[in-house]
Simulated assay, not measured.
Amino acid sequence: MTKPPFRLSPYQVQFLLVIGFITVGYALYVRYLAIELSTVALACDGGLQTLLCQARVLSTVLFKNSVFGITALVIAALHVMRPSIVLLTGGLIAAGLGIVLYNVALSGIAIGLLILGFARPAPATA
């Protein structure tokens, strides 16, 4: 028994595009306006308790421990075994955050695995 190929509907593709742009946009915001901007970094290290500083601390802890990359890799491996829109969305979110927030190697492998989730044998012709 062969599995049918995993195909996305146009609405699912649009949903993934929106989620991808939001995820990468937020990651760019945190990276360039919270982590790397020296004035914000000095204020947050000085004890400022804002939502931006909390996002900075959380993302710093997560990327130092490679959480984004490992999560993206695990979800992508699950997606290769059992492709679904839920796993694809989760993997896209984790990989998008990982690519922008310094977990490039593991997140890059995860992106490749997410693409491999679409590879299924072609249906036999009679």
Score class of each variant (00 low, 15 high):
Leu58His: 14
Leu58Tyr: 14
Leu58Gln: 15
Leu58Lys: 14
Leu58Ile: 13
Ser59Thr: 06
Ser59Gln: 05
Ser59Leu: 03
Thr60Lys: 07
Thr60Ala: 08
Val61Trp: 14
Val61Gln: 15
Val61Ser: 13
Val61Glu: 14
Val61Cys: 10
Leu62Tyr: 00
Phe63Tyr: 13
Phe63Pro: 01
Asn65Trp: 15
Asn65His: 15
Ser66Tyr: 09
Ser66His: 12
Ser66Arg: 10
Ser66Gly: 05
Val67Trp: 08
Val67Glu: 08
Phe68Glu: 01
Phe68Asp: 00
Phe68Ala: 00
Gly69Tyr: 03
Gly69Asp: 02
Ile70Thr: 11
Ile70Val: 13
Ile70Ala: 11
Thr71Pro: 00
Thr71Met: 04
Leu73Glu: 05
Leu73Tyr: 05
Leu73Lys: 07
Val74Tyr: 06
Ile75Lys: 04
Ile75Cys: 02
Ile75Gln: 02
Ile75Ala: 08
Ala76Glu: 11
Ala76Val: 12
Ala76Ile: 11
Ala76Pro: 11
Ala77Lys: 09
Leu78Asn: 06
Leu78Phe: 08
His79Ser: 11
His79Phe: 14
Val80Gly: 10
Val80Ala: 08
Val80Leu: 14
Val80Lys: 10
Met81Ile: 12
Met81His: 08
Met81Cys: 11
Arg82Ser: 10
Pro83Trp: 10
Pro83Glu: 07
Pro83Asp: 06
Ser84Ile: 00
Ile85Lys: 04
Ile85Ser: 09
Ile85Glu: 07
Val86Glu: 05
Leu87Gly: 02
Leu87Phe: 09
Leu87Thr: 03
Leu88Ile: 03
Leu88Glu: 02
Leu88Arg: 04
